[in-house]
Design a protein around this nucleic acid. Sequence first.
DNA 1: GATCCACGGGAATACACGGATG
DNA 2: CATCCGTGTATTCCCGTGGATC
Length: 390
Amino acid sequence: MDIDARIKRRRRRGGGPRLVEDYEALAPVTHLDEPSDRGPVLERLLDHLDPVFDGRLPPNAYVHGPRGSGKTAVVTALFGHLERLSTQTQSVIYTSTRAGSPSAPGFVYVDARETHSEFAFYHRVLDALVDERVPEHGVGTEEIRGRLHDRVDRSRGGVVVGVDHVGAPEDTEAERLVDLFAGLPSNASWLAIGRTPPGETALSEYTATTVHVEPYRRQVLVDVLMARASAGLARQALTHELARRIADWADGNAHDALAALFVATDRANRDGRDRLTPADVDAAIAEVPVPSVSLGRVLALPANKQLVLRELVDLDADERASVTATTDAVSAAVDLSAGTVKRYLYELAESGVVERVQAEQQHGKGRPPSRVELRFPPTAFRRLYDLRQE
DNA sequence: GATCCACGGGAATACACGGATG
DNA sequence: CATCCGTGTATTCCCGTGGATC
């Protein structure tokens, strides 16, 4: 680690007791390389991917389960390991055969929250497969798709594309994805991950396998919390008792549990304490909305939308009394036009990041305004956002 | 010069209310 | 009394433009 980072860490804790060893390790959006206690799911995913170990492609698949059940945690970890294995195998083969064509399938993880357009999707997959940088401008979608086909057709093993956070069924999301997947090379198969049960999404009509992920059981969730605490907090900072308290409340949702731990930690840290108290935990639990949108989703938003949210979390009640008032307050602080800020707010409400709550109509004239309420814990967002700006 | 996409801006539509109208 | 209309506000929808990048 370089000296700057060491100094920064010292300054940040200001010589007081060091509660937080590592905010990143503690963050609800971070996934550990070895997720705890998702063994059975891992086994079923490996069963599905088994053909890979004979150099063949598995069929398409759909993984589904409720919020915070560890879908992303297990898939990112698994794909990470497989990709590492794959590149190692490739280099072995590369040195022992004359052709440079790799035989082990590649594994690419794509977060649909960050790749909205067709261009972005193919770009992401191609970028993960090749060493050279893939241009983001000046070249059309078809060109990128063509390059991707070339690259994958040349490989013998093909590629498995994992697409996480695929959307709700009502919109045309499933249709769009099917088209997107149809544009992949023939030597590719996909694994989609979402919350929608298979019967309710057209996606499952194209898959041979579906894997269901169950919510965490209470004791397992306690273990998850304790593992996080030991990765990111000072020793003894989180007691078993408090972890149980969080787990009871979170009801199997690891995201919300970790968010509560994160907020509680922030509170204790601000007060200069070196361990969490029941009051910290209670306050944190009160701050996490139910239902809440995942912080990963918030932090995957375009930069300027996050900027708007960053201002929003610092506004006081009367500045949030209506969309118009909020627009005025935010656009005064930010280099965006009022029109854009307002549109953002409506779009954020549409996607569930914030919620519009209609005011009790008071001043007779006109349609009654609605105020904007957060669907995520503001303390957690504030801290994570600020950390990422450094 | 080509391309993507974030912004900006404005038109169209929805909603609430009170008063006018049949 | 039921319905329509005008006004004012909120919300949704759409698309052209331009910055950034290759």
